[in-house]
Computed example of a mutant assay.
Amino acid sequence: MARPGLNLARVLAGLMLGGLSGLFGVYWDIAWHIDRGRDAFFSPPHNLIYGAMLASVLVAGVGMFRERRRTPWHLMVAGRALHPGILTVAAGALLVLIFAPADDLWHRLFGPDISLWAPMHLIGLLGLGLASFGGLVTAEIERWWAAGPAYAWLSVGFGGLLLGWSTLLLAEYEYVVPAFSPVYHPVILAGLGAFVLVLLARLEPLPFAASAAALGYTLFRAALAGGLMLTAQLDLAGVSRPLIAVLLPAGVVADLLARWLPPWLLGGFVGGTALAASYPVFAEALWPDWVLGAAWPFALTAALLGGALGGWVARQLRPLEGTA
C-alpha cells in the first residue's frame, strides 16, 4: 500500500541529471587536460562539473527540507527526519564541491598531477560514487515505501550511473595515458562491474535490471563520445577520445544467472564476461598477453569479492519489500 508523504521522483530525476552532467564534465575535463594542459580554475569543463554538483546539493537540500515523514529508514538529526539516501547524495555532491578549491590549492603547491588517482581527484571520485549510490538507495527505499512504479526505473538509472562512475575511475586507462601499471585496469573493471551488476540483478527493480543499466551506460557513453566530438568542433576540447568498456553482455549474464548462483559466484561470471567482451576494445592498447596473464587471478578475485559485496548490499535493501 502506498504511504503518504513527499514524492521524491522529481527530486531523484533532478539528481540523476546532475550526476550525468557531472560525469560528462569529468570526462570532458580529462580530454581538456590531455590536449591543452591544466587551464584556469573556471574552465568550461570545470564549470559544468561544479554547476552540476551545486545543483545536486540544492535539489537534495530541497528534498530533505520538504520531507515530513518518519519512516523506519529515516535518520533523526536535531529533531528532523532525514532521508538516508538523499543525505548520501548531498554528502557526495558536497565532497566534489569541497574537492574543487582543495584541488586547485594542491596544484598551486605541488604542480600538475600526472594521474587521475591523485589524492584530491580521489576525493572527487569518491563524492561522485557516493552521490550515485545514494540515488540508488533513495530509489529503492521509495520503491517499497511509496510504491511508485517510477522508482523502479530510477533504481535502474542510478545503477547505470554507478557503472559510469566505476569506469570513470579508470578513465586514464580509457584515454590510454595510464600513470600506473595496466594490470590494474582489468582487475578494477572486473571487480566494480561485478559489484554493480550483481547488486542490480539481486535487487531486480525491473526484469533484466542489470541489462537495462548496462544498456543505459552504453548509450550514455555513446552520447559522451558524440558530445566530445562536438566540443572539439567548437574548439572546446582536443582530439582525445576514451575507449568504452563493453558491459552489456555482463549485465545479461547477471540477470540470467541471478536466481541460480550465489552472489560471489555470480560475480565471477559477470566479471569474466565483462573482461571477455571488452577484450577486443582494449587488447591492442592496454591488454597484451602479459597483462592478462598477470591480472587474471586478481581480476577473478576482485569479481568474486565484488559479487559478494553486491549481494550483501542487496540483502540489506531487500527487507524493504516488507514495507510495501
Rank of each mutant, 00 (worst) to 15 (best):
166 S>Y: 08
236 L>F: 07
276 A>E: 02
177 V>E: 08
255 D>Q: 07
205 P>Q: 08
7 N>K: 13
214 A>Y: 11
212 A>H: 05
118 A>H: 07
82 L>G: 04
157 G>T: 09
119 P>L: 08
302 A>N: 10
243 L>A: 14
113 D>T: 15
101 P>Q: 01
93 A>H: 03
32 W>Q: 06
316 Q>D: 00
250 A>S: 03
200 L>M: 12
278 S>P: 01
308 A>I: 00
1 M>D: 13
302 A>D: 03
240 S>N: 11
70 R>I: 00
175 Y>E: 01
186 P>W: 01
105 L>R: 14
63 G>T: 04
126 L>W: 04
35 D>P: 07
94 L>P: 01
203 L>C: 13
205 P>A: 05
150 A>F: 10
174 E>H: 15
176 V>W: 00
260 W>E: 14
200 L>R: 11
138 T>H: 05
38 R>S: 10
301 T>L: 15
289 D>F: 06
322 G>Q: 12
61 G>I: 06
42 F>E: 09
230 L>I: 15
147 A>T: 10
74 H>I: 08
57 V>N: 00
153 W>E: 01
319 P>M: 07
148 G>T: 06
4 P>L: 02
210 A>W: 09
113 D>Y: 09
33 H>P: 02
116 L>A: 15
153 W>I: 02
12 L>W: 02
83 H>W: 01
232 A>Y: 09
73 W>G: 03
160 G>K: 07
208 F>H: 09
99 F>M: 09
65 F>E: 04
203 L>S: 06
43 S>G: 10
22 G>L: 04
80 R>L: 09
2 A>Y: 01
133 F>C: 09
217 Y>V: 03
57 V>S: 03
100 A>M: 03
2 A>R: 15
178 P>L: 06
92 G>Q: 02
212 A>W: 08
140 E>A: 06
198 V>I: 01
104 D>E: 11
156 V>W: 03
147 A>C: 08
191 G>C: 10
288 P>H: 09
15 L>A: 07
76 M>D: 07
237 A>K: 08
272 G>L: 08
77 V>S: 00
307 G>C: 08
97 L>E: 02
21 S>C: 15
